[in-house]
Amino acid sequence: MTSKKDRDGETALKNDDISPDIRQELFRLQVEIRDCEKRANDLFFQNMIKGTSHLSLGQEAIAAGMAMAMQPGDKSFCTYRGHAHTLARGVPMEKVLGELMLRDNGLMRGKGGSMHLTSVEHGVMGSYAIIGAHLPIACGAAWRAQYLGQDDVSVCFFGDGTTNIGAFHEALNFAAIWKLPVVFVCENNLYMEYTLTSEITAVEHPAADRASAYGLERIVIDGNDADVVYRTAQAAFAKARSGGGPSMIECMTYRHSGHSRADPAKYRPPGELERWLEKDPIKIYRTRLAEFGVPEARIRAIEEESKRKVDEATEVCKASPPAPAELLTTDVYADGGWAWRN
């Protein structure tokens, strides 16, 4: 690969399929997700976030790479580990942190909480906390696109643990027989919750090896390299948009923290985390940017801007009141209320 400075002083890259702008955007997204998740972790320990929360620390490249390849109308279906995917679609940090803190300024004004982040205007069609439930739901959204002749793609994220529940298998078969424009993205971080997925799964690659059984291509990629994720996503989305049907992408990754705030992840063998920290997606990508000639000052500016955004968002959330009492009974039914009788 070669590079030269263009007249604006920015780096122009040759022999590369990913533009410098997109590269910097991929880096920015990963850094912002990382900083926001770290802040969520800190706020827990300050007792400012109640309930539970599931962080994507170490898995940022998947959210960033997938979201960068999406078009505005595309639909994301996330899990309870969904902060990263929500942020990656452009949802403001203060809306996400506000929901985690159960404040009135949150995405759903505190009615959903950490596990159910939703922002329809950004294409985030919900975060689902019952394992496997959203794979068939994503199929349904894709069926609507197919039926109405719309060209959006439904992208469904889930973990390796999801591959052993029935809805996963029903959804794969359904998507395959109806040739639906849906892309399934398995974030294989090795652990279902506290147990190694390899110890409780009949095949080595829990998503990709099963995909083959439903006539889909077996795709396993490095989920810690945002470029690899981005390229794979582009190919899968193009296939879905052109009527080629569903894809399953298994992204190998690792979560740096435990399953949820309750989990210190003591079950991990010594040295495992350290090995994966060497493959930290943000570390990899920072080096990549430098290799492609992005100046250190530009990289630092992205990092500093991210920290500033997180600080600002945190202050907005801290200043926001809790959800008002009248929200208790709103939106149970489509008339906006909760009346079940006359």
Binding site: K75, M125, G126, G132, A133, H134, L135, P136, I137, A138, C139, G140, A141, A142, W143, R144, A145, Y147, L148, S154, G166, A167, E170, A171, N173, F174, I177
Partner: peptide
Amino acid sequence: DTPISEQAILGAAMGAAMTGL
């Protein structure tokens, strides 16, 4: 016609319903 997949039937109905059908 669908396969014998009650979760897929109701899940697909929901995904279609929440996006316009």
